[in-house]
Design a protein around this nucleic acid. Structure first.
Length: 425
DNA sequence: GACAAACCTGC
DNA sequence: CAGGTTTGT
């Protein structure tokens, strides 16, 4: 492992101090003029030297009010990013390994180059398309060249479809759905919901990711009766055992999310059981087969993006291990159904505590009736992006659990007009 | 049609 | 006992 140091800080005393980063150095927080997209934004003096086997740091405009990586990447939406050093997040997206960080106004990213085919590695070996050899990678080498889009390389799709032919910048904009004006949504929700208003102050920048449907579906199949740390572990094992190895950084190896074919293998269930998946092993294996057989595979899954929410939800619920909660998660986080509100016991508690005791009364658990009532309630309160608002509350709740809770908050109650109740779809 | 118990493992 | 689904009553 190499430790690099950014040299020549020069005169810019105001810039964040470059620190030693074991592998992923930080980009300097440079502000690009006005987002003119004029290609070479920083003259050659200010950009850090490229990492070994990684593209130079680049950025796109994205104020922190619109995105908080630490909340979005670690808030229970995705399980594939780790904070490799403070403020730096490394993970796999669209079949490649990225490191992300952000400054006040920019989202910074670098791509790590894939290792040479080594074949000394455990892999799925199943009916995956033959390995592409010698990927032609637009390697920035030491040169100057544009930081602008035109020179960016295309990606061979892995588990992900629909990103082929997109530039890295476009992939990120799509993944984070940067076209959605989050601040405006926050304002609207705050206006109609005083509890949201309180929470939102402490948790800005929580947006819903637009994830790959296959990855999202199978990740959330693993979440039943489970908690975050173990889920993360399981997903990592799943990728390691069934996904193509991409590269190694420090001591961590990164793998693509497995293809449906890889997960549909005959020995999948047994292997996953060995990996500690428990009864979920069968769900993963069976669902992979079912998606291939009855939903048109990965492409069919992806096409659910363009059908109505109820229809997509219903299709997902036919899969083993997929109930309404998991289906709603996938609808919201991969299938463009912003109105989908996943209701778990946490959200149920929140709903009862802050939004009225009549929600899901009489039930001892989150039954389908409770799910429907609470979903409809929040849709009527928050509107067509209700799922996004729910993500904010959920994230806040998670955080509260980990860190020192605001003990006060648990006892505050917020009044909500009763008229909001009982509307239905 | 709706609610309770089982299913696995770990914290 | 858990951020859920499935199965049986």
């Amino acid at each position: 492992m190499v430790i690099l140091r950014i040299r020549s800080c020069g005169s810019h005393a105001k810039l964040p101090r470059p620190e030693l980063q074991p592998e992923h150095r930080r980009p300097r927080a440079l502000s690009r003029g006005g987002g003119g997209g004029s290609g070479r934004r920083n003259a050659m003096n200010s950009r850090p030297a490229p990492l070994p086997r990684a593209t130079p740091w680049r950025s796109l405009p994205c104020p922190r009010a619109e995105l908080r990586l630490e909340l979005v990447l670690c808030g229970g939406q995705t399980f594939r990013w780790t904070e490799t050093s403070p403020g730096y997040w490394t993970g796999v997206l669209a079949g490649r390994v990225w490191t992300l960080t952000q400054s006040e106004e920019q989202l910074w990213y670098t791509l790590h180059e894939e290792e040479k085919e080594d074949s000394s590695r455990e892999e799925d070996g199943l009916s995956e398309p033959p390995q592409k050899k010698g990927r032609k990678q637009a390697q920035p080498d030491g040169s100057h060249a544009g930081t602008s889009e035109p020179s960016e390389s295309h990606l061979p799709g892995e588990a992900s479809q629909g990103v082929d032919g997109l530039t890295p910048s476009q992939i990120l904009q799509d993944y984070f759905q940067l076209h959605v004006n989050l601040s405006a949504l926050y304002q609207g929700w705050s206006y109609v919901d005083s509890h949201f208003r309180e929470v939102a102050i402490k948790f800005p920048g929580v947006r819903v990711l637009r994830q790959d449907p296959v990855e999202c579906l199978f990740s959330f199949i693993c979440t039943s009766n489970n908690h975050l740390s173990r889920i993360t572990n399981m997903i990592q094992h799943l990728c390691q055992a069934f996904g193509r190895r991409l590269c190694q950084l420090d001591t961590k190896t990164y793998h693509a999310f497995p293809s449906l074919q890889a997960m549909a293998g005959a020995d999948t269930e047994a292997r996953l059981r060995d990996l500690g998946f428990g009864y979920r092993a069968r769900f993963v294996s069976e669902s992979a087969r079912a998606v291939l057989k009855t939903l048109g595979g990965a492409a069919g899954l992806q096409q659910l993006r363009s059908v109505p929410y109820e229809q997509a939800r219903h299709a997902l619920c036919t899969l083993p291990g997929v109930g309404v909660k998991v289906a709603d998660c996938v609808c919201l986080m991969a299938l463009d159904k912003a109105e989908a509100v996943p209701v778990d016991t946490h959200i149920w508690q929140v709903a009862k505590r802050y939004y009225g005791q009549e929600l899901g009364m009489g039930a001892r658990s989150v039954t389908e009736r409770v799910h429907r009532e609470i979903g409809n309630f929040f849709r009527s309160l928050w509107g067509p992006y209700a799922g996004w608002a729910q993500a904010v509350l959920f994230c806040a709740d998670l955080r509260k659990y980990q860190e020192s809770a605001d003990p006060d908050a648990k006892h505050r109650c917020v009044k909500v007009p009763r008229s909001s109740l009982s509307t239905l779809t």
